[in-house]
Amino acid sequence: MNTLNTRQQAQLAFIASNAELEVGHPDDCPLPLATLATTDGSEDYVSRVLSGGLTAHVYRIEAQGRSWTLKRARERCLVQNTDGQTSFLNEVQRRADLRELKRDPILGERLIGIVDTCYGSFRQGVLLSPWIEGDPIATWNERQLTQLFEMLAALLLGGLFEWDLCPGNTLDDGHVRLFDFGYMYRFDPLRQFNSNGTEMPQFHAAERFETRQYFAHLLALEQREESLALAAFALEKRIALEAYGRLHMELETRGASSTVLDWLAGIIGEWKHAMRGDLEALYLKEAWRSHWLDLHDDLSGQTCTASTLARIGWLERTTRERHGDLQRLLPVEPQRQLVEELRRARQLAERWQIA
């Protein structure tokens, strides 16, 4: 059984058991646990009901003179796959891990952007955190990118891999904040590439950010002016390259395997070569990868949006206009086959649109 299946089976077995998992203590909560566990948004202490949570209902609540974020697990996650169905359990597990990691004397200060957890209970379906007075990040700047990659590198060194760096999971209140960990999993950074072991080397922290968020941002810039998108890509790649260089040194110091170090060095080398030469070719290659993978993430979970359709549009245009360039950069299917795959993908994406 591979690493992915082993993790999924362990989580399904935990859900089927009667075991509880808690982070913190109910006495740490500003309201009784029974009150939090039955909150439905109609209460006087609820100041805001947030939409869009696929795993949990999310509320801003007011208690003891301050604001809090309350997550209550949905009875049925809206993501229709195993990782979706186990995502609330996974988030409680990671909240426990992150609480400990933030106390680490070396990595803790690099994780100030990770939200604190006041209390969490898997069986009660409750997660309570301080409210973040931040805004979604519409246009990524140098400060934000630097803070994000510093935090991602610290998470990797701490043995945690975040798969879902989508726009809804990042906020900025003067510092980039991460607060949703339903798709963050443990792994061994000295022996593995990500939480799927060494089976899927194409997935890494920068790729996850680009695939789940940044290339959607670049697509919007492309529609204004392609040079804007290429400049923003160059900025992100420079910051990612610096972060990956430091990560490589830290992993080497900690005794990482040659398999991991060579893999990471290969990514760094490709980026350096592109930064010195044909950045446009790297843009095309990684844009295709990002839009293609994100499309299939959405189709797998049956959680498609207008952004899914925009990505399909980019893939369709690129298939028509630049298939020859793609073939020189990537192993892609024949043009006619891609056109048919994308036609079917558009039909499914239109059927599985969520609010």
Score class of each variant (00 low, 15 high):
208 R>L: 02
209 F>A: 02
209 F>K: 06
213 Q>L: 06
214 Y>S: 02
215 F>M: 08
216 A>S: 08
217 H>I: 09
217 H>R: 09
218 L>G: 07
219 L>F: 02
219 L>A: 05
221 L>H: 09
221 L>T: 04
222 E>T: 05
223 Q>N: 14
226 E>S: 11
226 E>P: 04
227 S>R: 05
227 S>D: 10
227 S>V: 15
230 L>R: 08
231 A>C: 06
237 K>S: 08
239 I>C: 11
241 L>C: 07
244 Y>F: 13
244 Y>S: 12
244 Y>L: 14
245 G>Y: 03
247 L>H: 10
247 L>I: 06
248 H>N: 11
249 M>W: 06
249 M>L: 11
250 E>W: 13
252 E>Y: 06
252 E>V: 07
254 R>S: 03
255 G>D: 14
255 G>S: 10
257 S>P: 02
258 S>F: 03
259 T>V: 11
259 T>C: 04
261 L>F: 06
263 W>E: 00
264 L>W: 05
264 L>Q: 07
270 E>R: 08
270 E>I: 09
271 W>I: 13
271 W>K: 13
273 H>T: 15
274 A>T: 03
275 M>R: 13
276 R>M: 15
276 R>T: 10
277 G>C: 08
278 D>Y: 03
278 D>A: 07
278 D>S: 07
279 L>R: 12
279 L>P: 03
279 L>V: 02
281 A>S: 12
282 L>S: 02
284 L>F: 05
286 E>V: 14
287 A>Y: 12
287 A>S: 11
287 A>I: 08
287 A>L: 09
288 W>A: 15
290 S>Q: 04
293 L>G: 00
295 L>Q: 05
296 H>P: 01
297 D>P: 04
297 D>N: 12
297 D>M: 14
298 D>C: 11
300 S>A: 12
302 Q>D: 11
304 C>N: 03
305 T>L: 13
306 A>K: 15
306 A>W: 15
307 S>W: 04
309 L>E: 11
310 A>H: 10
311 R>F: 09
311 R>V: 01
312 I>S: 00
313 G>W: 14
314 W>M: 14
315 L>E: 00
316 E>F: 01
317 R>Y: 06
317 R>F: 06
319 T>W: 04
321 E>D: 09
323 H>P: 01
323 H>R: 12
325 D>Y: 14
325 D>M: 15
326 L>V: 05
327 Q>C: 09
328 R>C: 01
328 R>P: 00
328 R>V: 03
328 R>T: 08
329 L>T: 07
330 L>D: 13
330 L>K: 06
331 P>R: 13
335 Q>D: 05
336 R>K: 15
337 Q>L: 14
338 L>F: 02
